[in-house]
């Protein structure tokens, strides 16, 4: 089969979410092996935005590289949900590595891919008020773009429409954990405003520049 052939001039994207949830470590959750200085329990994860999306035909496993002070800092997750729950006291950068299925007979033929996520245990967004229960959610939206995918990859990614995001999110609690088409249009509007402002600024700067130019000419004469 020619399934490992790449499809030219086509890219296909899969929206994903990655990040972490964190909450304060309460006493009843502590076990005998929990170090006493750990203050938070957190979960780092990577998942497709839509629940029904199955990426196992593509992804062999996902590894999370934690801080070296942890036991076996590289945690390998073979099947979804791709997530690691740990306790700790400090923030650090976690390397999330996606391993695609190797082997030429499968024809996926993609290199492993790394995403960096800075673990958040404390409220980080000054605009969003910290939750009362001390939960922290640092969820990031992104899209995996397969540029010039192989036919096999393409076939897997077109089994279902993976990009059908919901228009809005009903659950108020989850506003900062999920993303919708509405968010996208908000963002677009915001960007439009920015661009408009910049354009205006360009106009004023241009005028000033022209004024200065004339001043210079007047001075030289």
């Amino acid at each position: 089969m020619s399934s490992s052939r790449r499809i030219k001039n086509v890219s296909i994207s899969v929206p994903i979410l990655y990040g972490n949830h964190a909450e304060k470590l309460t006493d009843d959750k502590r076990t005998a092996i929990t170090p006493p200085d750990h203050t938070h329990e957190w979960t780092v994860f990577l998942k497709p935005v839509l629940d029904g999306v199955d990426l196992t035909p593509l992804i062999k496993r996902v590894t999370f590289k934690l801080h070296e002070t942890y036991d076996t800092p590289v945690r390998s997750i073979e099947s979804p949900p791709y997530q690691v729950t740990e306790t700790g006291w400090g923030e650090f950068e976690i390397i999330i590595k996606i391993h695609f299925h190797p082997g030429s007979e499968l024809g996926i033929n993609e290199k492993n891919f790394q995403i960096f996520h800075g673990l958040k245990l404390h409220p980080f967004n000054p605009k969003a008020p910290p939750r009362e229960n001390g939960e922290v959610h640092s969820v990031l939206y992104d899209e995996l773009i397969f540029q010039e995918p192989t036919e096999a990859t393409f076939e897997i990614l077109t089994r279902k429409p993976f990009n059908l995001l919901p228009e809005t999110i009903e659950d108020e609690e989850k506003k900062d954990q999920e993303f919708s088409r509405g968010d996208e249009s908000d963002e677009l509007a915001r960007l439009d405003v920015f661009i408009h402002k910049i354009k205006q600024e360009i106009e004023t700067q241009k005028n000033k520049y022209q004024d200065l130019e004339q001043e210079k000419i007047a001075l030289l004469q």
Partner: peptide, 20 residues
Amino acid sequence: EAYGLHYHNNEKLTPGVVLR
């Protein structure tokens, strides 16, 4: 859009996975 599919006309693409 639903499939996240995009045809690039004259851009040069480097095959592989990237983050948006």
